[in-house]
């Protein structure tokens, strides 16, 4: 088991390296750099001015050097301009030339400096990630129990009327992406035309003081899309378990139906959905980006949109590192959990 986890970690690191390099390559293509220069300098820069701007900030060096710098294995870029100003990739406002470190990359724990927000990247990421984790937490609290409930109730008696209607509900919810359900919810529950002003259409205030009124709709929107899938998986695994021999035996013994479901079937039926729930995390990330733009909630997804829109290279890299690790770690947990939960695999 230890070796297995170690190997998975190796693969994870390799994947993260490859992916950050791809992001690095894409953000450092010349048109993107030109866009960065023009948004940071001014829109009417001539081609030569753009070139000087990039030269002075170390953007026009070879790709591998720049990537090494970001990793912290190549010394940072430094240059003294004609007017005596000291510039470089490790220079931060308020830090003197002597104090500026030679290396500044993730190996040194420095995630870089955001050109969009004019602040340290790790600061921004932590702050926004906190907002998003809070959102995710409530999504999980709402989504997982209700999805399992729907799945178990539907799978309990296959083909019954409950099964039909709950299955239709789960298909409907998988067919409704967040931007559709979000728009419908906002239209129905917040607009002045329908008149049901139950909730608020934006979650901007939810960042400071989340209340049911301003926070429920975003949570519901994300939860609903993921719910259908988990519910269908639970239903499939539940129907399979309900046809197993030991359930028949329990029935013939005269165990009551609720007891069969809770004591015999449920435990075995919940192994498969566990994997699915873990693998839903990466998809939640998608939903988070959509819902955060839709409800104007400034979290991780909002940072992603801002960073990508302004070609903020170092922020974008940090965002991709975080999201890639979320994906890979959830995969790891789902693999380990699957082995742990399933006695047949655990013992052999």
């Amino acid at each position: 088991m230890g070796l297995f986890i170690l190997r998975r970690f190796g693969v994870m690191l390799l994947t993260a390296l490859c992916l950050t390099f791809i992001v690095f390559f894409l953000t450092n293509l010349y048109p993107n750099l030109e866009k960065l220069a023009k948004t940071q300098g001014n829109q009417r820069m001539s081609d030569e001015q753009v070139q000087t701007w990039l030269d002075n900030r170390g953007y026009s060096e070879p790709l591998l050097t720049k990537y090494g710098r970001w990793l912290g294995v190549v010394p940072g870029f430094t240059k003294t301009l004609n007017d005596g100003q000291f510039v470089g990739s490790c220079v931060r406002p308020g830090v003197t030339q002597e104090e500026t470190p030679r290396f500044c990359g993730i190996a040194q724990g420095d995630w870089g400096y955001s050109t969009r927000f004019k602040a340290d990247v790790d600061e921004i990421i932590w702050k926004r990630l906190g907002n998003t984790l809070y959102l995710m937490m409530w999504v999980m609290i709402l989504m997982v129990p209700s999805a399992l409930l729907v799945g178990v109730l539907a799978g309990m008696r296959e083909g019954s009327r409950t099964d039909r209607s709950l299955s239709t509900f789960s298909i409907l919810s998988t067919a409704t992406p967040e931007y559709v359900s979000g728009v419908i919810f906002i239209a129905v529950f917040t607009s002045s035309t329908v008149g049901l002003k139950w909730f608020k259409g934006t979650a901007t205030q939810a960042m400071e003081e989340p209340t049911f009124e301003n926070f429920f709709l975003p949570v519901l929107t994300i939860a609903l899309y993921g719910m259908g899938y988990i519910a269908r998986m639970t239903r499939a695994s539940m129907t399979e378990v309900m046809t197993a021999q030991y359930i028949r035996t329990a029935r013939l013994k005269g165990v009551s139906f609720p007891n069969i479901v809770i004591k015999h079937a449920l435990r075995n039926a919940l192994i498969a959905p566990f994997t699915v729930i873990m693998l839903q995390f990466p998809w939640l990330l998608n939903g988070v980006v959509i819902v955060e733009s839709l409800f104007n909630y400034k979290g991780f997804g909002w940072v992603l949109v801002e960073a990508a829109g302004n070609n903020d290279i170092q922020l974008l890299l940090a965002v991709s590192v975080v999201s890639v690790f979320v994906v890979l770690i959830t995969q790891l947990i789902s693999d380990i959990g699957y082995v742990y939960l399933n006695p047949r695999i655990r013992i052999s």
Binding site: L29, P31, E34, L285, V289, G309, V319, V324, V327, L328
Partner: peptide
């Protein structure tokens, strides 16, 4: 590797006029 990429990030990186220009 491709699956580990969040779809939205990939879209934001690939589907821009700047990338089309390259």
């Amino acid at each position: 590797l491709i699956l580990a990429f969040p779809v939205i990030l990939l879209f934001y990186l690939l589907v821009t006029p700047e990338i089309v220009a390259t």
